[in-house]
Structures are given as structure tokens and as C-alpha cells.
């Protein structure tokens, strides 16, 4: 780890004043479960680290008229144990349950989950997020069993976020603060696919802090997350799917289907979701929706199996959402 200066401000304004306008100079520390590893591997070499865990206004989960407000430094543990979340947002609880291990649950934060860097092994081995060599990505001809089946341009890594897919399915927004003020983005616009080395995979600017997540009310919205894991350990899932279904009686009025770990951003299955409109979720309908969700997938040499996994994850998430 390269040495750095450190601050642990207690107000958001103080924290914002410590940020930089350029990536790479300052890193924001919350749970630390990703950042410290990145720094130890010299993937990140910030000159300053700003610990935001002491900023009270970034914590807490509250019910508001617009839905649920989840502070960025809310831990996975707090989220799992929150009754408001448990009551209306099984998709979030199921995603949180996929984050295994007491330690990660106690340390990791929801903001950290959204801002964590991808797990692509070329990136983690120092070959860059796009793993470019002479302008061309190493990944299509390399070891790509865990990579994107919905790549975007040269971006073949997959978003590592556990909460991105369910938050997008639920129509959540993130609030980003800078010294100039705050802005809000739908979560789906928070994730981006960089096309040049050095660009980030999130829309956050280096002088901004993700302060909170706003999740619309989900009363009557059937929602679920289904993860396909390689084993029972602390590992990233191979594929996940989150769904949110606004129902009219037992028929779907509108739907969102979002797949995780299949592309550089969470991937929305827009057509499959539209197809669900007016339908009752049966095994056959769920299966067909799964098939439609993976249309257009462009698997690489070693990750064709993820197409089937995504299809199954969508099917099972839909069935879980409507299960009693």
C-alpha cells in the first residue's frame, strides 16, 4: 500500500471539501472491504483517503413519502435486519443474503457495494479495467469464463454490485453530492460502461459522494432476487436476476427484469419485461421470459454457460416473486 494522508470528517461538507476533481488522487473509505485490497495491490494509489463512516447524515434507513431512504454507509447487516426493508423489499434482502460471511456483512456498506470496482481478474492483476493490449482487449481471447455475455464495446468485465440489479428493478435513485450541490440519478444511469482505460464504471464524479439511495414504495410490487452461486462460500455469484412486478390481480401490469454479473453494468431485459405485461406468472411464462431476457447475448469463448444461467435466474426470480 502506498502511503496516504487520511481524514475522517464528521460532516458531508467537510468530506466533500477534501475530494479531488481527478480520479486517482483521493479515495473514499467506507467498509474498506474492497478499497484496502485495491490499495494493497497498487490498483489504487490514492494520495488521500477520506473515511466517511463518521458522517452521521450518511447513515440510517428511513421511510419517507417518496419511499425508503437508505444512507450510503448503511451496512449490509443493518439492511438485512431492517424491518422496513424486510417488509417490502425481498429483492434487496435476498441480494444482501448473497453477501456471505459475518465480517463482510458487518463491514460492507450499500454505497460501497454500488461503488466497488469490478472483480475482473485482468483488472485485479494490473492489466487495466479494459485489459487493453495494443488497443485491443485481452479478454475475448483470454480467460473469460466469468466475463460478460452482454459486453459493451471494449468493456467485457462484469459489474460486481449485488444491489445494482434489485435497485434498478425497484426503480431506485441515487443521490450524489458535491460542493456544488446534489444531483439524483436513476440507479440504471449510475452504472456506465467505460470505453477508454482510466474511465470509471460508475457515473459518480471524483468530487462527488454517493450519499443515499431512494427506493420507491413497493407495496403491491412483487419483487425478488435470485442468485446462482458457484458454491456456498464468500464468492461473487455467477449470475443474478432481480425482478419487480406491479400486479393487477394475478396479472402483470408492468415489470422490470435486471440481470447481474452478465455485463459491465446490470443488464435490463426490457423486451422480456414488456412481454410479461398482462400475463400470469406461470412456470412456462417465467421460462419464456428467461429465454427472451437472454436474447442478444454475445457470449465469449468460455462463458456460454452464463446465458443459460441468466435464463434460469430470471425464471426463478419471477417464480420467487410471485410465490407466497
Amino acid at each position: 500500500m502506498q502511503s496516504f494522508e487520511y481524514a475522517s470528517p464528521t460532516t458531508l461538507q467537510e468530506a466533500l471539501s477534501l475530494l479531488s476533481t481527478q480520479w486517482g488522487e483521493v479515495d473514499i473509505l467506507a467498509g474498506g472491504t474492497d478499497l484496502l485490497a485495491l490499495m494493497k495491490d497498487y490498483i489504487h494509489t490514492p494520495k488521500r483517503v477520506v473515511n466517511i463512516k463518521g458522517i452521521k447524515e450518511l447513515g440510517g434507513i428511513q421511510q419517507t413519502s417518496a419511499g425508503l431512504r437508505i444512507g450510503a454507509i448503511v451496512t449490509i447487516r443493518e439492511l438485512l435486519e431492517n424491518e422496513l426493508v424486510q417488509k417490502e423489499y425481498p429483492a434487496l434482502i435476498q441480494a444482501a443474503r448473497g453477501i456471505r460471511g459475518m465480517q463482510l456483512r458487518n463491514m460492507g456498506t450499500i454505497g460501497g457495494d454500488l461503488c466497488q470496482r469490478p472483480r475482473c481478474w485482468y483488472f485485479r492483476n494490473g492489466f487495466g479495467l479494459l485489459a487493453l493490449k495494443d488497443g485491443k482487449s485481452l479478454i475475448p481471447d483470454g480467460e473469460n469464463r466469468y466475463h460478460a455475455i452482454f459486453p459493451q464495446g471494449q468493456a467485457y468485465f462484469v459489474s460486481a454490485s449485488s444491489f445494482g440489479p434489485p435497485l434498478i428493478a425497484l426503480g431506485a435513485r441515487v443521490k450524489l453530492a458535491s460542493t456544488g450541490g446534489t444531483r439524483e440519478l436513476p440507479v440504471e444511469q449510475f452504472f456506465v460502461a467505460p470505453q477508454r482505460e482510466g474511465e470509471r464504471e460508475i457515473a459518480l464524479k471524483p468530487n462527488e459522494i454517493l450519499t443515499e439511495i431512494l427506493v420507491p414504495p413497493a407495496k403491491g410490487v412483487r419483487n425478488a432476487t435470485y442468485e446462482i452461486r458457484p458454491d456456498e462460500g464468500v464468492n461473487w455469484p455467477l449470475v443474478t436476476a432481480s425482478v419487480a412486478l406491479r400486479m393487477e390481480g394475478n396479472r402483470v401490469a408492468s415489470a422490470r427484469i435486471v440481470m447481474g454479473h452478465v455485463g459491465p453494468t446490470p443488464v435490463q431485459a426490457v423486451k422480456a419485461a414488456a412481454w410479461l405485461k398482462g400475463k400470469q406468472i406461470t412456470e412456462a411464462v417465467a421460462e419464456e421470459a428467461g429465454r427472451r431476457a437472454v436474447e442478444g447475448a454475445k457470449p465469449l469463448s468460455q462463458n456460454g454457460y452464463k446465458v443459460q444461467l441468466a435464463q434460469v435466474a430470471v425464471k426463478r426470480a419471477l417464480l420467487a416473486a410471485v410465490a407466497k
Binding site: 472483480r119 481478474w121 485482468y122 492483476n125 492489466f127 481471447d141 480467460e143
Partner: peptide, 19 residues
């Protein structure tokens, strides 16, 4: 990885042992 010559999963989040 033949491209880089590296043991590309030489970390416990990729080199998996039982929990």
C-alpha cells in the same frame, strides 16, 4: 492465462477452496 503468462486466479476470491 496464456496471453499474460500469469496464474490469473491467484487470489482467494477466484481460487476457491471450500467454506
Amino acid at each position: 492465462d496464456q496471453l499474460t503468462g500469469r496464474f490469473i486466479n491467484a487470489a482467494y476470491d477466484f481460487y476457491r477452496i471450500a467454506s
